[in-house]
Simulated assay, not measured.
Amino acid sequence: MAATSMAAALAASLPAPQAAPTPSAPTYEAIPASMAKVIDIEAEIPITSVQLDAMVVSKIIKHAKEAPGSSAHGLLLGLDLDGTFEVSNSFPLPHHSNDEDDKSVKSVARYQGSMLRSLKEVQADDSVIGFYQGMALGSFFNQTLVDTQAIHQEKLRHGGIIIVHDISQTARGNASFRAFRLTRSFLDAYKRNNFSATSLIDHRLTFSAILEEVPLKIRTNALVSSFLSTLSEASVPPAAQTNPALATSSAAIPPSYSGLNLGTGNTPRNLELIVEALDNYRTEEGNLAYLQRQIAREKAKADAYVQKRKEENASRVAAGLAPLPEEDVSRLFKIPPEPSRLESLLLLGRIDAYGKSLEETASTGLVKMYAAKGNTGN
Rank of each mutant, 00 (worst) to 15 (best):
A2H: 13
A2E: 13
S5E: 14
A9L: 15
A12M: 10
L14Y: 06
Q18S: 13
P21Y: 09
P21K: 13
S24Y: 03
T27F: 10
K37T: 13
E42F: 09
A43R: 11
P46W: 04
S49M: 09
D53Q: 03
D53R: 00
M55I: 10
K65W: 02
P68K: 09
G69A: 03
H73L: 06
L75K: 00
G78H: 02
L79R: 12
D80K: 06
L81G: 02
T84M: 10
S88M: 08
N89F: 00
L93I: 09
P94D: 10
H96F: 15
D99N: 11
D99W: 07
K103M: 08
S107Y: 03
V108C: 03
Y111M: 06
Q112H: 03
S114F: 00
M115V: 02
L119S: 01
L119C: 00
K120P: 00
E121T: 07
Q123R: 12
S127A: 07
I129K: 01
G130W: 01
G134S: 06
V146P: 00
Q153I: 01
L156S: 03
G160E: 07
H165G: 02
D166A: 05
S168F: 08
R178I: 11
F180M: 08
N194L: 04
A197P: 00
A197V: 11
L200D: 01
L200T: 04
I201Y: 10
H203A: 12
H203P: 00
L205K: 02
T206W: 00
F207V: 03
S208N: 08
E212N: 07
K217Y: 08
R219Q: 15
T220W: 10
S232I: 09
V236N: 03
P238E: 13
Q241L: 14
P244N: 01
P244Q: 04
T248H: 02
S249I: 12
S249H: 07
S258N: 13
N266H: 09
P268K: 04
L278N: 10
N280T: 06
G286N: 10
L291F: 09
Q292M: 04
A296S: 13
K299F: 02
K299L: 14
A304R: 05
V306S: 12
K308Q: 15
K308C: 04
R309I: 07
E311V: 12
E312T: 13
N313H: 04
V317L: 13
G320I: 06
P323L: 06
P323K: 04
D328S: 15
D328H: 06
K334A: 15
S344A: 14
S344C: 11
S344G: 13
R350Y: 05
D352N: 15
Y354L: 11
K356D: 12
S363P: 01
S363V: 05
M369V: 14
K373I: 09
G374Q: 07
